[in-house]
Design a protein around this nucleic acid. Structure first.
Lengths: 236, 236
DNA sequence: GATTATACCGAACGCGCGTTCGAGCGATCA
DNA sequence: TGATCGCTCGAACGCGCGTTCGGTATAATC
């Protein structure tokens, strides 16, 4: 069996928090056995669920191993340590989110349409990967050192995309708005990152209808300050 | 020294998750020494800061004791266990938030003004107690059993106040709005509960201006769907 | 067939955790 | 003066944690 990645070379440097050179290529063996990548991804899925359910600190390696059907020591054949698991969950989720957002955004020039695409992508991705998105929203500070810097970089990249769209909406539709654009963008982010606390697409409305309402509220909120402002701050 | 509360009776039942009968009456002794309540509150403040900084699981009793200037064992003279500390932080914060909100709301009949008061109170309380509100936003699931039920009850009470105001705004200003009111309320909650991730009143704008913008955006978002909806969902 | 690398595991190590024990001390009260 | 009580602490207990060690079985390589 040749397709595995040598795990022992990991000691050679602290470049360990870079992503995989060959990420999850899912090369199944001729027989029915799982490949290294498949097994690794399976463990990652199980770990994501557990971390989402009980939190990173309470999710022990023993429980991850049990849930994944591997021995405790066997877990370390796939991940050099616990933090690496959390890092990979966040790294892959953010990376996928950013790249699919860029893909969806390609060719869309209307800023409002760009916002629609962005919120739709986020909510849709949340509905399809609730555990992973919860972990990304809730365990932001659980990483340390290089792993933290790396995911922090990705979060800012994600923020900058959204912030750029918000800026363009302001520029084209409400260039003289008195609203602080950073606050506006963070309000939107708050709404999106708080989804995991209440929204279950299996119990409630469809992702696209939730996304639509969020976009509608956001646009109304920044486009019609005149009418709202009279009611919102009569004194100041 | 007579004013302390007997700590040994705590064993008698599991009513331990009820609040104090005489909460923090700050009765200082004739001399300059701290009273039981003062010392207890001081520890609570220190613990709140630590939990806000490193999270509940990572905040060890040893570190709380060190930061508070008490021995590890001495800590247990004031709190029967670690969970009780987290419970008290959340219980007191939510209780204070709810009661001061009710107080501020008293005599205010205009729903829009009620919303203004609510958001102002929340943002103002956040700015004055950032650590406590961060703990309340971030450590919601760290409690278990009765302590969890109790704080969960308070959160719902808080939600219901806000939800009632949102409903009244819809009823009086946009009774035929197609927007889902639960989604609208949770969007607002998301914005407010996400504050701790980005807003620092020492570095950025004043609490009242942030509150004003949040209210403005929210009102515009639900009142002006007509204009926004054309841009937000051209197809559906 | 011998060698090497991979996949995997039982068992343990060492540490930090929440919690408890038992004692000391000063003030109060009989 | 002696007993009681509130407050404080050093020291320890037991447990669960992340991680590692030393090994075995299987498959690929020469």
């Amino acid at each position: 069996m040749q397709q595995g990645r040598p795990p022992m070379e990991a000691h050679k440097a602290e470049r360990a928090f870079e992503p995989d050179a060959t990420p999850a290529q899912t090369n199944r063996s001729p027989d029915g056995r799982e490949s290294y990548d498949e097994r690794r991804n399976h463990i990652l899925v199980v770990a994501t669920d557990l971390i989402a359910r009980v939190g990173y600190e309470r999710a022990s390696m023993r429980e991850v191993a049990k849930a994944a059907g591997v021995s405790l020591a066997g877990l370390y054949h796939y991940f050099e340590n616990k933090e690496k698991i959390l890092f990979l969950v966040q790294f892959r989720t953010f990376s996928f989110l950013i790249s699919s957002l860029r893909e969806q955004l390609h060719g869309v020039s209307d800023p409002v349409e760009q916002l629609r695409v962005t919120v739709r992508t986020h909510v849709g991705h949340f509905a399809a990967n609730m555990a992973a998105l919860k972990v990304c929203s809730h365990e932001l500070d659980s990483l340390t050192g290089d792993a933290y810097e790396e995911t922090s970089r990705l979060r800012h990249e994600y923020y900058n995309i959204a912030r750029g769209i918000v800026d363009r909406i302001f520029d084209t539709l409400a260039p003289d708005s008195p609203l602080d654009r950073h606050i506006a963008a963070m309000s939107l982010f708050g709404t999106l990152n708080w989804l995991y606390r209440w929204y279950d697409p299996k119990l409630s409305r469809s992702p696209s209808s939730v996304a639509n309402q969020i976009v509608t509220q956001f646009l109304g909120g920044i486009l019609n300050t005149d009418r709202a402002i009279q009611r919102a701050r009569p004194d100041e």
